[in-house]
Amino acid sequence: MNVQVAALLGQDGLTNGAIYALLSLSILLVFTVTRILLIPLGEFVTFGALTMAAIQTGKPLALEWLLATLMLIDIALDVYSRRDRTVSRKQYQMIALKAAYLAVVLFVTQTFTLSELPMLAQSILTLCLIVPMGPIMYRLFFQPLADAAPLVLLIVSIAVHVAMVGIGLLLFGPEGGHTKPFSNSMLQISNIFIKSQALWVIFSALFLILALFFAFERTLYGKALRAAAVNQVGARLLGISPVFAGKATFALAAFIGCASGILIAPITTLYYDSGFVISLKGFVGAIIGGLASYPIAAFGAVVVGLIEAFSMFWASSYKEIIVFTLIIPFLIWRSMKASHVEDE
C-alpha cells in the first residue's frame, strides 16, 4: 500500500464514517427519547437515495402516493380521535396545514418535469417527500405502544423495517440507484487526489452534526427533547408530552436518514434492501457509545467507516465480518464495568 492508496481509502473511510456518524447520532437520539431501536432508519437512507435517482433519471415517481396515503390516514386518525371532544381552532388549523402541505407536494410532483430541476430543488423535494413519514411512522406504529415492553418495541421496529423494504421494492424496483455527483472536480494536493464529492459528504455531515449540537444546546425545543430523554416524568410535568418528543425525534431521524441517502447516492449504488446493513453500522457506532454518549458514538462510527475501507483493501470478502466483530472489545469493556443486577 502506498500513500495514494492510503489517502484514497482514508477518504472513502471518512466519507462513509461521516454518514455512519450521522446515523448513529439519530439512532441514539431516538433511543434515548423513546427507548426504540430505530431499525428502519436505513430505509430512510435508501428511500432518499432512490428517490433522487428516480427524479434524475426521469422515472415516474410513486413515492408521493405513499406519502399521500400515509398523510390521509394520519388526518383521518386526527379527526377520529377527536370525535367525542370539541375540536379547537388550533387542531383545525393543524389538519388544514397538513392537507395544504400534501396538496402543494402533489402539485409540484405532478406539474414540473422533475429531472430538469436544479439539484438543490431535487434534494429539497426529496426531503419534503420523505421527512413527514418519520412522525407518521411514530404515530401509526409506535405511539399505541407507549407502555410496551422493550421486546415488543424492538419487534415492531423490525416489522416496520420489513414492510418498508417491501415498499421500497414496490416503489423503486430491484435495480440499484445512482445519482450525479454534486460536483465532478478532483482536488490535488501534491500527489494525493481528493474527490470533491467526498468533501461534500464530509462537510455536509459535519455541518449537520454541528447544527444538531447547536439545536440541542441552544434552542428550547432541542432542550425539551433532551429533557424528555433525561427524565420523562419531569418533562411531562412541564407539558413536554412523550408524543411530541416521539414525533419530533422521528422527524429528525427521517431527515438525517434521507439527507444521508442524498449525500451518498453519487458515491455508492444503493438498492431497495441496502438500508439494513447501513443502519446496522450506525448501530455499531451507537453500541460503542454505550447507547448513551453522542461524541463517542460519532467517533466510533467514523472508526467503523475507516476500518471498513481499509479491510476492503486487505481482506475484502471479510469486510462485513471485521466491521461487526468490532463491537466485541467494547462489549468486553462494558461487561467488565457492569456489576449491578438491574430490573428492566
Partner: peptide, 24 residues
Amino acid sequence: LTLRLSGHYLPLGTIAWGISLYYF
C-alpha cells in the same frame, strides 16, 4: 460478553454475530 449488560446489548450483539457468521 453480553448477558451482564442491560437488555439491549444481547439483541444487538446477536445481530452482529448473525451477520458476521452469515458472511463467513
